[in-house]
Design a protein around this nucleic acid. Structure first.
Lengths: 341, 341
DNA sequence: CTGAAAGCGCTTACAG
DNA sequence: CTGAAAGCGCTTACAG
């Protein structure tokens, strides 16, 4: 391997001058610089980043711990995080946590964390009771669903408000019996404060406001926000006689399976049942019917998370920040009422 | 920051004994080990990975340069690469290249490459003429579409064969006038050997074999495999009078927009036009109609790429390997013929 | 404008 | 079973 010393010897200068050239320090004579650069080119030298990192104490790498990269929402998010990080000269290591608490803690406490300048943790397995575990000694931003009064910056989602607005939209479009699909044990009032339980809370609040029925059976609970699981759960509910004229889906992704289940049961969307999702994933407007949804500005979420993290990396010691992006309802075919059709 | 020396001092041993404990070397007395571990715990020590990397000459990190992470196929692929890499104790840094040749070369030549033990490059911008640029001095696996006789391992895709099989499937289902959607200047015989041009080649070969018409107008060319672009292109083609009873789409992703464009033009899938995609993305079976497609075993692609790379990292100096996964046609509703319906 | 020297935190033959 | 010492390749005050 060619090192800085080899270049120095070949160019007839000291290693430090080579270093100065590499780091574009101005106090190097033009002719010296040219000679060094040519030698670098000839010998095919490339800086050893591990050595530079050790010396500088920075890796210019951040971690992004994400539940499941193959869910479109997180694919979008990862894309935007990588792009934003690049604008700040940072690389991104993706760690998949499979939405498990253990893996999320692993992303935190695992020794390799020390290779990152900071961590963006999209927490879905951790709960409020884990707040004290988040007092880490490196820059971190929590991203996602849970409500913490934790010791770190947090980019949260408008879960309750967004879900409530989605239900109100269904009501405006004429729905009078509104179901919902949620992950986890949402029926349990003591349930952990997960994304789905927050969206379920918004769903229930809106139903109460609107004086719509709130049968427990209308809350379809699935163990995981997975297409196959959602298809089966909604199919079973319909087969066992459950009826509704509107349904709120915790994610656009799940909504695709829900629409399929409705179709398989002979129900038409939106004529028989109106469907709304959450996330405004890129596909949603191309589906048939196009999918109404809650847009939460993924780009803004990614940008804010990276900017908060960069500020902490640069030594910002202010109080932890909590940021919730705005949202808007995107009305498409899946909730269109016949009167407007 | 707590270092190994702090631990050594506090535990009354030498730094090297601490190192031995950290690395689970057996030749440390149990009582000494216990004392060191306790001190590590008390002082909150974590290994400095940059220093360890420098010393060991390994970072246990590989790069994965991918065109666009928000395209479902690459989201799937990234998920599987990350999972496979983890099985080998490797982390993955994702670099997005935006499918540009410059960024792909950047992933290669950029100095930061030196931080990786190896690189998996999903090349879509590079062409055969760039083969000599791939003679790099670190382990690399090219993944994806192009045909190289390059100096590196290559996991290719059955682009020509898969596309041809898709067209034959359309023919078997009764199609007699088959269009296709491709990215780039596919009409040009000198076109670069891109994924789309290879799939176009397969499309043309199958049409020729089957004695089906091969009008240039049936090859719908779009600048980019993007939903909005595909929607508009197919919409324009239909508006200008183009008619066909089957269409091969270069990816499942694009097929979603194509089905939407057909629907917007009042054409029913599969009754009026049958549609087949490529990739077997996870969504495909849940769409309405469910999407017929070419499955190329993404899991196998990811596993093979990581295994080849790991072998190179471990010093394997054998001749470059080329691997093409098998494929199969997955027939779903979007190509169902009335007779079978 | 250039260089000698120290040191980032760790690991590894080598010696005892 | 444990330690003293060298060194991975780089950067950075400091001196000239």
């Amino acid at each position: 391997m060619v090192t800085i010393r080899d270049i120095a010897k070949a160019a007839g200068v000291s290693p430090m001058t080579v270093s100065n050239v590499l780091n574009s320090h101005p106090q190097v004579r033009a002719t010296t610089r040219a000679r060094v650069l040519q030698t670098i080119d000839e010998l095919g030298y490339r800086v050893n980043v591990a050595a530079r990192n050790l010396r500088r104490g920075r890796t210019h790498t951040i971690g992004f711990a994400v539940p499941e990269l193959d869910r479109p929402y997180f694919g979008d998010l990862a894309t935007r995080v990588v792009a934003e990080a690049e604008r700040h000269g940072l690389q991104v290591v993706i760690e998949e946590t499979s939405a498990s608490r253990d893996n999320e803690l692993g992303a935190l406490s695992h020794s390799r964390v020390r290779m990152y300048d900071g961590l963006i943790l999209s927490a879905v397995g951790l709960g409020s009771r884990d707040a004290d575990l988040l007092s880490v000694d490196f820059p971190m931003v929590i991203l996602g669903e849970r409500i913490f009064d934790g010791p770190v910056d947090h980019v949260a989602m408008p879960n309750i408000e967004g879900a409530a607005a989605a239900v109100r939209h269904l009501h405006e479009q004429g729905c009078r019996r509104v179901a919902g699909v949620f992950a986890g044990a949402v029926a349990d009032a003591d349930a952990d404060v997960s994304m789905s339980s927050l969206r379920h809370e918004g769903y229930r609040r809106a139903l109460a406001e609107l004086s719509l029925p709130l049968d427990a059976s209308l809350s379809i609970s699935i163990p995981k926000l997975d297409l196959a699981v959602a298809l089966e759960a909604v199919g079973n509910s319909l087969a066992s006689g459950l009826r509704f004229d509107g349904i709120f889906c915790s994610t656009d992704y799940v909504a695709i399976a829900v629409i399929r289940a409705l179709s398989d049961a002979g129900l038409r969307v939106p004529d028989d049942v109106k469907v709304i999702g959450f996330d405004n994933s890129m596909l949603s407007r191309y589906l048939i019917p196009s999918l109404s949804t809650v847009d939460t500005d993924t780009a803004l979420v990614a940008r804010t998370a990276v900017e908060l993290l960069v500020a902490r990396i640069d030594g910002d010691a202010a109080e932890p920040v909590q940021f919730v992006p705005p949202f808007r309802i995107v009305a498409r075919e899946s909730t269109r009422s016949a009167a407007l059709g």
